[in-house]
Write a protein that binds this DNA or RNA. Structure first.
Lengths: 173, 173
DNA sequence: ATGAACTTTCAGTAAATCCTGAAAGAAGAT
DNA sequence: ATCTTCTTTCAGGATTTACTGAAAGTTCAT
């Protein structure tokens, strides 16, 4: 059926577009999110040229974002024997995607933020003025919360999908 | 002690700067995050002019971002009797801040994303080709995960701080 | 009604971000 | 050693996003 293929392409397109928008809202480069969406829904591995052609983007753009996705652990490089080219394949398991994003965002963004909070906390440790005390208190609470959330994230991200679901069920009881 | 006031200002500055950077990484306008940081650590309410002066930004910029912060529920307008001016005050309770951000991001970003996923899922519902089935399956898993996470978020955000901590403790056991 | 004090909007500009395309680099094939 | 195929880099350009400053709007007092 011709129309099914057409519909599929349209649906995939919508998904790619929307995933791009969503990525942008969360501080991820639009193209990177689009490539991710494309590969997540690709029936097969894709080459750089195929990605370029599908999204109508330049080689440089495709290359950079593919490599970024690799560094986030969201896609991997696959080589076919007899071919010199690199192909790319996305992690498709949703839980695994979540875990990897969580791990990277923690490493790249949460840890540095915690560092700052600790600095600010330390810098105001011995202040005597009410303003100084209040600032210190605020930094302390923020640091507590962020490090706590970070540990929670670790914990969740280190779980198997099944265990997480079970725990969540308990949570809803 | 003069130096304490100087140190405090420096620490606060570092916090404001870093909170701005962090915000930007998470898709929040830098200035908005900076104003938020400023108000979170303000010993007192602040006027638009005070914010403008402290961050060296224009009236338009200050105004827009202050109103955005109000719409996120992260700061509130305070009026002093006898004064016509509006002053602003930040929510300082970290758990409350978290709840409000979670609620807004859900409303503004998660819900529309879910809508798309459901569309894509529905559009590929009856497809027979392996590619169509695979796409549908992927959309289904994503939708499941996102809606599940969203409900979890609701649940957590509706809890009192104390209850959340208790639950988390159980979680670590 | 007029004016003073403040808020809101928005056209134009500035800045940050992202993308392109071409050139340079790498590495296997002949 | 040279060619071919593919990857990587990056200066310059394009696009998006954010900011400014001034004008218009609002509200209250006189």
């Amino acid at each position: 059926m011709i129309s099914e293929a057409v519909n599929l392409e349209a649906a995939r397109d919508e998904f790619v577009t929307q995933w791009g928008i969503m990525g942008a809202q969360w501080g991820i480069n639009r193209t990177m999110a689009q490539i991710h969406a494309l590969l997540m829904t690709a029936p097969d591995v894709m080459s750089t040229d195929e990605v370029m052609a599908t999204l109508e983007i330049s080689r440089g753009n495709a290359h950079t974002n593919l490599k970024d996705l690799v560094s986030w652990g969201l896609i991997r490089i696959v080589t076919k024997k007899g071919e010199r080219k690199e192909f790319f394949e996305a992690e498709k398991d949703v839980w695994e995607i979540f875990r990897r994003v969580a791990r990277e965002r923690k490493r790249r963004e949460i840890e540095p933020a915690l560092e700052t909070l600790r600095n600010c906390k330390a810098a105001s440790e011995d202040m005597k003025s009410p303003e100084g005390r209040a600032f210190h208190e605020q930094m302390d609470q923020l640091e507590d919360f962020v490090s706590f959330a970070s540990r929670m994230g670790d914990r969740v991200a280190s779980m198997q999908h099944g265990k997480a679901i079970k725990l969540a069920m308990k949570f809803f009881s």
